[in-house]
Structures are given as structure tokens and as C-alpha cells.
């Protein structure tokens, strides 16, 4: 991370490579959505996957994560951040969705409630 140590990852090559890869990943995601050729779930997986790939590309090629010398506090801080935001985002989605069970939102149908409670008709 220091500007004064020799990091051979901080070069015109890394930035250009990162730029080109990112453009490709962005464009692919954009075109996939514009064409809308697959079902919704598949498309969501694709674009999320492409976003994750671009995240890694930018972390490596732009931010040079991993090039710093030990101790790698930056990596540890980032790891903890990912753990926290995963818990926060997915936890909240899980919790709030379950809350809808008792207070069904307008788009939740009776059919879903019956299925959840395995009510036999």
C-alpha cells in the first residue's frame, strides 16, 4: 500500500488490464439484461457473479490489495467488513422476509401462507 516501496503491481499494465476487464464485465452484464434471454433467477446469478468478478478485478488491479507487506491489517479489516455486511444484509433480508409471514405484504398471497403452514384442505 505504500507509495514508496517497490510494488510491481502498480503499473500502467495493471491499471489498463483492470480497466479493460472491468469494461468487459460491465458490458456483458448490461447486454445480458438488455437481451433478457434467460429466466430471472439465472440472470440475477449471472450479474451478481459478474459484479463479484469486477470487485476482485478492481481490488487487485486498481487497489493492489495483497501487494502490501505484512502484517496485512488491510486484508483483515476488509475480511471483517465482508463478514459484518453479509450478516447485516442477508440477516436483515431473512428477518424482514420472515416478518412478512405474520403481516403479509400486499404481494404475498394466501397460497403462500397455506403452503408454509402445510394446511391441508
Amino acid at each position: 500500500m505504500s507509495t514508496d516501496t517497490k510494488t510491481n503491481t502498480e503499473s500502467i499494465w495493471s491499471y489498463s488490464m483492470g480497466f479493460v476487464l472491468s469494461i468487459c464485465l460491465t458490458s456483458i452484464a448490461y447486454l445480458l439484461i438488455r437481451q433478457n434471454g434467460h429466466n430471472k433467477t439465472t440472470l440475477v446469478w449471472y450479474i451478481v457473479g459478474l459484479a463479484m468478478a469486477q470487485l476482485v478485478v478492481q481490488l487487485v488491479f486498481f487497489i493492489h490489495l495483497g501487494a502490501e507487506s505484512k502484517p496485512r491489517w488491510n486484508k483483515l479489516a476488509m475480511l471483517f467488513m465482508f463478514v459484518v455486511i453479509s450478516i447485516l444484509v442477508f440477516g436483515s433480508m431473512w428477518i424482514m422476509n420472515s416478518l412478512n409471514y405474520n403481516h403479509p405484504a400486499m404481494n404475498m398471497t394466501d397460497g403462500e401462507v397455506i403452503k408454509d403452514e402445510i394446511i391441508k384442505r
Binding site: 463478514v83 459484518v84 450478516i87 447485516l88 431473512w94 428477518i95 420472515s98 416478518l99 409471514y101 405474520n102 403481516h103
Partner: peptide
């Protein structure tokens, strides 16, 4: 430290999230 991010729902057990949660 880590676990303190995994327990927060116990402040609203009664808000109705259901048995699994």
C-alpha cells in the same frame, strides 16, 4: 467481538419473525 454481530434479534423476539429465526 465477532459473536456480538450475530445476536441482535433477541431484542425483538416478539416482533413475529417466526420460530426458525
Amino acid at each position: 467481538t465477532v459473536l456480538s454481530f450475530t445476536v441482535w434479534l433477541h431484542h425483538f423476539f416478539t416482533m413475529g419473525a417466526g420460530p426458525n429465526i
